[in-house]
Computed example of a mutant assay.
Amino acid sequence: MSQVQSVERTFTILELLAQYPNGIRITELASEMDLAKSTVHRLLKTLSNRGYVQQTHNGHYQLGIQCLVLASSLLNDLDIRSLAKDSLELLAASSKEVVHLCIHDRQEVVYVDKVESNQTIRMYSQIGKRAYMHCTGVGKALLTGFKEQEIEQLITDKGLPVFTDTTITTKEKLLEELDMIKESGYAIDEQEHENGIRCIAAPIYDYSGKVVAAISIAGPIDRMTKERVNGELAVEIKKHSARISSKLGYVSN
């Protein structure tokens, strides 16, 4: 057996075991790989010695703790800004509008990255700036990951202050809006934070399905028309939010 072939078979074993969280018998594993049981046993023994595979009480094989150690190390080192950077630049280039990357912290939106538009625009945002969640596209996208009691706590702690005539000011309206965002996959800030500015945003998910960030495209309403926002920009931002989520290990159902 060549070294390369051994490596390939080793990864195949790990990938197959990942599909059987409760474990699988060696005979079934050998059958799926179309290999002799003795060959699979040698590979399993090596993996077991290194902690990547373990046996259950009934003799089934499953992934070992060392796989979790490696995964945790990788996930801890993932930098959302680095992973999202190329998508932000591509969105800015294609839309010719300002693109943001945001996270939530202490019930507020925090702008952590921004790619400027090459067109003239005046906006509230800058890297490190904070904003309310209920009145921004990125904030509402992030809120789709909140439980209802967390939203109630947000309203108790932060309120729903009014910024424009279109700002959401009631819990009922906010929950209704969040349901629509979950259905469509994107959020719209309909001049809810700044008059004359329209924004479209989408959530970003990590490997566990948790909403950890959001990206947005924003610009003046004469360029960010409703037709454009709900058409080409909706397609683009959902594509890139899915792309970034995938880099974080998210697998959609």
Rank of each mutant, 00 (worst) to 15 (best):
Q3I: 12
E8T: 14
I13M: 15
E15Q: 11
L17R: 04
Q19N: 14
Q19I: 03
I24D: 10
I24S: 04
I26F: 00
I26C: 07
K37D: 02
S38P: 00
H41K: 09
L43P: 00
L43H: 05
L44I: 11
L47P: 02
N49W: 03
R50T: 09
T56C: 02
H57G: 01
H60K: 07
G64P: 06
A71V: 11
A71D: 06
S73A: 11
L74D: 09
L78Y: 15
R81V: 12
A84L: 08
S87N: 09
L91Q: 08
S94Q: 08
S94G: 01
V99D: 00
H100T: 01
R106M: 10
R106E: 13
Q107E: 10
E108M: 04
E108N: 07
V110D: 01
D113R: 06
N118H: 13
I127P: 05
A131K: 04
Y132H: 06
M133W: 00
H134S: 11
G137T: 07
V138N: 12
A141S: 15
L143E: 05
K147Y: 09
E148W: 01
Q149H: 10
Q149Y: 08
E152S: 10
E152A: 08
D157R: 09
T164H: 12
D165A: 10
T166P: 00
L178Q: 10
I181D: 03
K182N: 08
E183G: 01
Y186G: 00
Y186S: 07
A187L: 09
G196E: 04
I204W: 05
A214R: 02
A214F: 05
G219T: 07
D222E: 06
K226E: 13
V235E: 15
I237F: 01
S241F: 01
S241Y: 06
I244K: 02
I244Y: 03
I244P: 00
S245L: 09
